[in-house]
């Protein structure tokens, strides 16, 4: 985790502490608290679980038990480039799981996880509505159709190139000022 993200998260945790105080100390409030945490962080960090447990006088295991029961709660921060691999019917038939596996291998994380530098997160989704392009993957909002293992490699090169271009642009901008 780079220090910028660390500082940001520490600030959010501080804010969370004050927001928790708005909730009555009643275990029935656990779900609303979890939703609030997810809204604040876009995921549920470990420290927040301890804080929620402390607030409601529950064991952390109980809070985590409720949170993991729902698929909508995330436990890893979203990456700068969220990658979604479709495993809907058409993509499944066209080998979407091979694409997913390629991403996993390339990024060295598993589905549902985020790279340590928080650049990429990997997720599986069920149908993005363009079955004609199967198998499909999304990087951010951009849809990439007719995916193949070689194209996974290409995608990362493209992202790298885009990144470098943006940096060059930034530097030029700064030197011009």
């Amino acid at each position: 985790m780079d220090s910028e993200a660390g500082r940001e998260e520490a600030a959010l945790l501080n804010r969370l502490r004050t927001r928790l105080a708005d909730f009555e100390k009643d275990r029935a409030n656990l779900l609303s608290i979890l939703r609030m945490i997810q809204e604040t962080f876009s995921y549920i960090p470990e420290e927040a679980i301890y804080m929620a447990a402390d607030h409601l006088d529950l064991a952390p295991s109980e809070v985590y038990g409720v949170a993991t029961f729902y698929n909508q709660f995330k436990f890893n921060p979203p990456g700068k480039y969220p990658i979604k691999v479709c495993l809907g019917t058409a993509c499944h038939v066209k080998g979407g799981d091979i694409i997913l596996e390629n991403f996993e291998r390339k990024l060295d994380i598993r589905e549902g996880e985020t790279t340590p530098d928080r650049d990429f997160s990997l997720e599986r989704v069920a149908c993005v509505g363009c079955c004609a392009l199967a198998p499909v993957a999304l990087v951010g909002e951009a849809v990439h159709g007719h995916m193949a293992p070689s194209k996974v490699e290409g995608l990362f090169t493209r992202i790298q190139v885009e990144k470098e271009m943006a940096e060059r642009e930034k530097r030029r901008h700064e030197s011009a000022r």
Binding site: I49, L58, A59, Y64, T68, F69
Partner: peptide
């Protein structure tokens, strides 16, 4: 005691500690 609990749902239910 409350440090052993059930997590997740369905066939993925996990019994264990928080850490």
């Amino acid at each position: 005691y409350r440090d052993l609990a059930a997590y997740q749902i369905g066939y993925r239910v996990y019994y264990g500690r928080f850490e």
